Simulated scan of single mutants.
Amino acid sequence: MAQFKILWLDANSSDPMNSFRSKLADALTFTDVNDCIQYVQSHSNEPIYLIVSGSFAKEIVSEIYESSNLEQIFLFCGSVSTYVEWAMDYRDKIMIFDHGDDLLERLWNDLQNKLRKQATLCLQRANEYEKRALQYKRPCG
């Protein structure tokens, strides 16, 4: 199972004093749209969650929207109403937020649910393999 990546594309994402950056922990930050597009396209085996500022959204979303590794786009902007109509074409992968804590709550809940599903599948497979192994267990003596 591939490990997911969180990408944050924003002109201010490289600022170490940005409080939102510290809340994102190990997210990869980008200030250049083309660099972010390149990353998404060159890491096709990694599920990606993209946080993008409103100022870059229209530029990047159309370029990467069809990427099979793009799990979810979190558009972080100052005004949700500014992007609602435009985002309708991308509604199955995009969510729009104007408050960082709301975005982070949704992101962490989505990732938690995804990891729990993966863990459940791993445990099911482990139990299956245990049963197979027991079929071959021979008594000593």
Rank of each mutant, 00 (worst) to 15 (best):
K58R: 13
F30W: 05
Y129L: 15
E66A: 08
D15C: 11
E85A: 09
E85I: 08
I73M: 02
L7E: 06
S79A: 11
G54R: 02
E128C: 10
Y90I: 02
F4E: 11
V33T: 11
K137T: 13
F20H: 14
S44E: 13
K131F: 13
R125I: 12
I64S: 00
M88P: 04
L50M: 08
Y136D: 15
F20Y: 13
T29D: 09
F20C: 06
F4P: 10
K137E: 15
E66T: 05
D110C: 09
T29A: 08
R132G: 08
H99L: 05
Y129I: 10
S62D: 07
A119Q: 14
D26C: 05
T29N: 11
L24S: 04
A11D: 15
S62Y: 09
C36V: 11
L107C: 01
L7Q: 06
K137V: 15
P139I: 14
L134H: 12
Y39S: 03
N69V: 02
Q135M: 15
Y136A: 15
R138S: 15
I64L: 05
M1S: 14
N34L: 13
D15F: 04
I51S: 05
A87W: 03
Q124N: 13
N34W: 11
F4A: 06
A27I: 06
F74C: 02
R106T: 09
F30H: 05
R125E: 14
W8Y: 12
R116M: 12
W86D: 01
Q135A: 12
L104T: 02
R91T: 05
L28R: 12
L7C: 10
D92A: 07
S22A: 13
F56S: 01
